[in-house]
């Protein structure tokens, strides 16, 4: 890296970007202006986070959808007419490609919004949720759901290796992997549930659930510094919407 630190997106900025993106899907009918809006939203995200790598993550989300979309509708979907045959083998359906490209734009917008959420600092997000006075159980749902997810993945991987070492057939072939799935999964899930339940008395004995939770004090963050990033997605929406009305 070039020594530039990635900056985090706040809950308010991510929430505003999501709201603006949903409004864009509902209101922007011009394809070129919709594409321009996505471009501006993505540029704002990169500028704010100083993280060009997020574009790669977005591409990884996008490609598994875009490639099949273009291939299926541009070549295979018989609902679109064939204009010509490539090397007398492949039917080319231009309207199918156009349809695939339009749907891809929607997915690109979703990937951009997800980029905002991905760059939200998880600790800050939990703090913001506490400040919103959400019930503690809902915050625990979110925070522990993310934290335990990684534990489940690691535990399943460990059990998978252990079962292989015991000689349980875990492949090759899809059927063998499906047959092996319960023998890997059941021990991992039961262990996770029992361990989780054992944490309950420990949490309650420390006062969890019997008093209001106070968010952690954090570094003072200038509200003014956040303002452009909050206004940005809304401003681009108004700009592209106005252009649509004028053109």
């Amino acid at each position: 890296m070039s020594g530039i630190q990635t900056r985090h997106v706040t809950l308010l900025v991510a929430g505003t970007a999501t709201f603006a993106a949903l409004c864009a899907i509902a209101t922007l009918r011009s394809v070129s202006l919709f594409a321009l809006y996505i471009l501006l939203l993505a540029a704002t995200l990169v500028l704010q986070t100083r993280n060009v790598g997020i574009l790669w993550t977005m591409a990884k989300w996008l490609l598994p959808f875009v490639v099949p979309l273009l291939l299926i509708h541009g070549l295979l979907n018989t609902a679109h007419d064939v204009d010509y045959w490539f090397m007398n083998v492949l039917p080319i359906r231009p309207m199918g490609f156009v349809y695939g490209a339009l749907v891809s734009l929607n997915i690109l917008l979703l990937a951009t919004v997800a980029g905002y959420w991905l760059n939200t600092n998880r600790d800050d997000m939990i703090d913001d949720l506490i400040r919103l006075n959400l019930p503690m159980w809902s915050i625990l749902f979110i925070s522990q759901g993310v934290a335990v997810g990684a534990i489940v993945e690691r535990r399943v991987a460990t059990v998978y290796l252990a079962q292989r070492a015991r000689g349980i057939c875990v492949g090759p072939g899809v059927l063998a992997r499906i047959r092996a799935f319960p023998s890997v999964l059941i021990p991992a899930v039961i262990a996770t549930l029992i361990e989780a339940e054992s944490r309950v008395p420990a949490l309650v004995s420390r006062g969890f659930g019997s008093a209001n939770v106070v968010p952690l004090p954090r570094k003072a963050r200038s509200a003014l510094a956040q303002l452009p990033w909050v206004i940005g997605p809304l401003f681009w929406l108004v700009l592209t919407g106005t252009l649509q009305a004028l053109l």
Binding site: Q144, G145, V146, A147, L185, E197, V204, G209
Partner: peptide
């Protein structure tokens, strides 16, 4: 509070199962 904590923790594990097993 014991019930709520238990529900929260078990619910969180179920969320983790949905997310984690999808990736597995």
């Amino acid at each position: 509070s014991m019930d709520m904590t238990r529900i929260s923790i078990l619910g969180a594990v179920c969320i983790a199962l949905n997310i984690g097993l999808n990736k597995v």
